[in-house]
Amino acid sequence: MNQFEYELAPNVENAVASGRSNGAVFLAGGTNLIDLMKGNLVRPTRLVDINRLPGLDRIEFLPDGGVRIGALVRNSDLAHDPKFARDFPAVAEALLSGASPQLRNAATVAGNVMQRTRCPYFYDAASACNKREPGAGCEARGGHSRLQAILGWSAHCIATHPSDFSVPLVAFDAVVEIDGPQGRRDVALEDFYLLPGNTPERETILAPGELIVAIRLPAQAALFAGHARYLKIRDRTSYAFAVVSAAAGLRIEGDRIVEARLALGGVALKPWRARAAEACLMGRRAGREEFAEASMLALQEARPSGENEFKIELARRLVVRAFERTAIDNTARLSPLPASIVNLTEEIQR
């Protein structure tokens, strides 16, 4: 890896000031950045270590029922916070379905949101990639594309976003708190990510020097606590990125759905909020037919970006499954294999 300067930022103000300089990047858990540096895929000239920034490692439950998660809270700490897991079970489940325990212990929540795509061509310094080098071309197109995007992709980039955590965050209207040279601002996570279009090198709305200081989930998100799941289809039971995933939430009164939430992961360069699917469930019964209708709406714009047409049908079926599981009261406890569609542990013990 290249030589770089290292700076331990004492406070947010200093971090933001240092982060503005050319070639500077923020270092938190380092679980993604260091890999990228070792692969010679990013070559920062300055690492601004934000791990010691005061006050960013707290989970604050807000009086209105929402929660404010400091940017430096570790993935494991958040997922295992009992109140958080009770109020926002799909988010906890998503966190625990990602990476490995060691990585979750090191990785921060803001770092999770900020992680780069796992597109193999992005990760291969010898391949052309418009994200790494604007205008270079996209070698993923026409290449091995089994796991690439089916929604929101462009001729310039067909990658997907790898985060599990961000999928329920988008479903439940999370807001990112940003501090930067121009002061503080709040941005909905859904709007924080940018689709590739003609500028796949621009991945988020963050300007140079801007730093995520917290992620908020609104009180409304906790209303889904009884009916919220994250399901992730993957090629092995753990330590694998999603083939497709779904975060689903339902509010059910009597036998009617009064509100539905749905976001898909592994399908686009951002978590894909499926508002049309949500809307079609309003006032309907929580039944398979209704969910199937929602699933068609959720994927109506999907098209394969390569040899990945199967993901469209798979995603439809997962939407139905996710809503079916979500409709069942799930407040009791978290699955021992979070986000798995099959619970082998229980099956073996039975």
Binding site: P120, R236, T237, A240
Partner: peptide
């Protein structure tokens, strides 16, 4: 990759072998 002959999944994250949970 059929065009370049380069390995697409030459790392332990993408070259899958079973994890403990795959072997109940």
């Amino acid at each position: 990759d059929r065009r370049t002959g380069r390995p697409v999944n030459g790392n332990l994250a993408d070259y899958h072998v079973p994890v403990n949970a795959d072997i109940p």
